[in-house]
């Protein structure tokens, strides 16, 4: 058993975790943050994507104890109370969601991309979400949504 302290969605946690518990298990089973999805469990599909210290990681490939001292954002931390994040809003506006299983990971990969590059090209957007598999949408409407969100976020900053 390890005792770790970390910040998840701006909230401090101090928690005991078993050695063999992955970050996704900690999020889903111990903290009930079930917005993070487990797809393949081997880092190929990106459904379990979270942002850890500014970088996207597959939470199925990170052990919980490795998250000691880190700052994590999950899909639950995207919206500001009842106000959806511009990326989430754009996904709805552009019809970028079908079954929805990849969506939390897609949104977080998009956030990580836009945090680093606020005006990406469509090709850069495709690269930014290339670690997230989607079987339903064919990605094009997701690219449209991230392009729209990037525009909205830049306009918000101007104001």
């Amino acid at each position: 058993m390890n005792h770790i302290s970390l910040t998840i969605n701006k909230k401090m946690y101090s928690i005991d975790v078993e050695e063999d518990v992955r970050l996704i298990d900690l999020l889903r089973d111990q903290l009930f943050l079930t917005g993070t999805k487990e797809g393949c469990g081997e880092g190929e599909c990106g459904a379990c994507t979270v942002i850890m210290d500014g970088r996207v990681v597959n939470s199925c490939l990170v052990m919980a104890f490795q998250a000691e001292g880190s700052n994590i954002t999950t899909i639950e931390g995207m919206s500001d109370k009842d106000e959806l994040h511009p990326i989430q809003k754009a996904f709805l506006d552009k019809g970028a969601v079908q079954c929805g299983f990849c969506t939390p990971g897609m949104v977080l990969s998009a956030k990580s991309l836009l945090d680093k590059n606020e005006n990406p090209t469509r090709e850069e957007i495709r690269e930014g979400i290339s670690g997230n598999l989607c079987r339903c949408t064919g990605y094009n409407k997701i690219v449209d949504a991230i392009e729209l969100a990037s525009k909205e976020i830049r306009e918000e900053k101007k104001e």
Partner: peptide, 9 residues
Amino acid sequence: EGQIDGGFS
């Protein structure tokens, strides 16, 4: 359109 994108993929 969403179905066409997905089906094409």
